[in-house]
């Protein structure tokens, strides 16, 4: 199981990074989403994988899932939506103003002068 989980994280990371390295905005956004999945899964697993354990306090249970990574990942998921939304509007803005969805500036455009 651990092998399965780890490989999934690895594949998501690799796919995400490959897309981030593309030159158009949309694949980069998709790539960031995939990277977010990978990171969230990794963070979640830092509490170690638990099956069939109660997540909520109850009578009789002696072991629970680790709540701390869950709380961290929960806010991370919501924040990642905010981040994606900001990137989307940036991508839209640059596409609508320049008619190109390339993420790279043409040479000479980004110089200090």
């Amino acid at each position: 199981m651990e092998m399965l989980y780890s490989s999934a994280v690895g594949i998501l990371t690799a796919a995400g990074l490959y897309l981030v390295l593309r030159r158009r905005t949309f694949p980069v956004i998709l790539g960031l989403s995939l990277l977010t999945y990978a990171v969230n899964l990794f963070l979640f697993a830092s509490g170690r994988l638990m099956e069939n354990l109660p997540p909520v306090l109850g009578q009789g249970a002696t072991a629970y899932t680790d709540p701390l990574p869950q709380a961290l990942v929960l806010t991370a998921i919501v924040i990642s939506f905010g981040m994606t939304a900001v990137i989307v509007i940036l991508a839209l803005g640059s596409y609508l103003t320049s008619d190109s969805d390339s993420i790279d500036l043409p040479p000479g455009d980004g110089d200090a002068e």
Partner: peptide
Amino acid sequence: VGAGAAALTFVVQ
């Protein structure tokens, strides 16, 4: 990078 992430996750697990 993906292999690294997978290995790290595996070691943590």
